[in-house]
Computed example of a mutant assay.
Amino acid sequence: MLTVVFSLARCRAGKRTGRIGLWAILGLGLSGVGSVLRLSGAQANIDVPALHGFNITGGLNLTPEFAALLIGLVVNSSATIAEIVRSGIQSVPAGQWESARSLGLQPGKIMRLVILPQALRVIIPLMTSSYLDLTKNSSLAVAIGFPDLVSVLNTTANQSGQVLEALAIIMVSYLTLNLAVSAIMNRYNQRIESRGFFLR
């Protein structure tokens, strides 16, 4: 409850100044998730692993399928994103580096104040495509037996015979995820173009 009050106060203050803080948005999102969990009756309990005899009970279990999916997606996406960031930084003309050095700026400040604000105009559209690819590539979990959305709905379609309805659910789910990611990245891109690099 305190999170909601704090976040609403931050949003109201942000509307007066024209800047809504990132912490206010995160607070509202977390309080919304907490409200949905409470209304649905689900309980979020933290289970601490403990040693009982010769076995460890409790805690989180990392299945081999999920570990393989996580490692594969992280390695692939991190390589793609690293290449996007590298090419975005290299797209800034060398004269910008030289001008910033001639003003006596330190290398960290050159990157933060001069290079990154210009590079982000190249980086963000490519990063949006990379995030959308990551969202769609998560369906590859079917190949290793991890029960994601596609696998669950395939099983439902096979058992109920309602294939069109299952395909419609898959299409709507991925469309919703892709539109949400695209809207968030477009909003971030507009904010950077209008107010500069730094989030306040």
Rank of each mutant, 00 (worst) to 15 (best):
M1K: 07
M1P: 04
L2I: 03
V5E: 06
S7E: 04
R10C: 15
R10F: 14
G18C: 03
I20S: 05
I20K: 06
W23F: 09
G27H: 08
G27T: 03
G27V: 06
G27L: 05
L30W: 15
V33W: 08
G34V: 06
R38F: 14
G41R: 06
A42R: 15
A44N: 04
D47W: 12
D47V: 15
V48A: 12
P49F: 14
A50D: 06
H52K: 14
I56T: 08
L62F: 15
L62I: 15
E65L: 01
A68H: 10
I71D: 10
L73I: 14
N76G: 05
A79S: 14
T80G: 00
I81Q: 09
A82N: 11
A82M: 13
G95Y: 05
G95P: 02
L105D: 01
P107F: 07
K109E: 12
L113M: 08
I115M: 02
L120K: 03
R121C: 02
I123V: 15
M127R: 03
M127C: 11
T128S: 10
Y131T: 07
L134H: 00
T135Y: 04
S139I: 06
L140R: 06
L140K: 04
G145D: 04
G145Y: 07
P147E: 01
P147W: 01
P147Y: 02
T156L: 12
A157V: 07
S160P: 03
S160V: 02
V163Y: 11
V163T: 10
E165C: 06
A166F: 05
Y174E: 01
L175Q: 00
A180D: 00
V181P: 00
Y188G: 01
R195Y: 14
G196V: 09
F198Q: 09
L199T: 02
L199K: 01
